[in-house]
């Protein structure tokens, strides 16, 4: 076994499980759950020795986690701006 293969065996690619759970609880539940499913794919590929598949799944997990994060952030910002606009317009 060459050294690169050994290193791969030591550390699976990042599954973004933690981030996905945080997205589920704080930002946007649907995208967070897709993230958790992708996290389980990463570990599944890794366990079966498909390291390229695991890397691929890791990238996908990251993408969904970021989509969830951004959509949650955009929603929160829009909500706040609308409230500010409302408060400003109704101020007398």
């Amino acid at each position: 076994m060459d050294i690169n293969e050994y290193l791969k065996l030591q550390t699976p690619p990042k599954s973004y499980l933690i981030e996905s759970i945080l997205v589920t609880v704080f930002c946007c539940m649907p995208f967070g759950i897709i993230g958790i499913v992708n996290a389980s794919n990463v570990e599944s590929f890794y366990k079966n020795g498909d390291y390229e598949g695991a890397e691929e799944a890791s990238k996908k997990a990251k993408r969904w986690m970021i989509i969830g994060l951004v959509s949650g952030f955009v929603f929160g910002t829009l909500y706040f701006l609308l409230l500010m606009a409302d408060a400003f317009l109704n101020f007398d």
Partner: peptide, 27 residues
């Protein structure tokens, strides 16, 4: 650079089965 023992715990707590259990709990 986790030790072998730590890797084992990582796989127990955050591996494939653990992730599926997390998914199940959330749903």
């Amino acid at each position: 650079k986790p030790s072998e023992n730590m890797m084992r715990w990582r796989n127990r707590l955050f591996g494939h089965h653990a992730t599926l259990i997390v998914l199940g709990i959330v749903i």
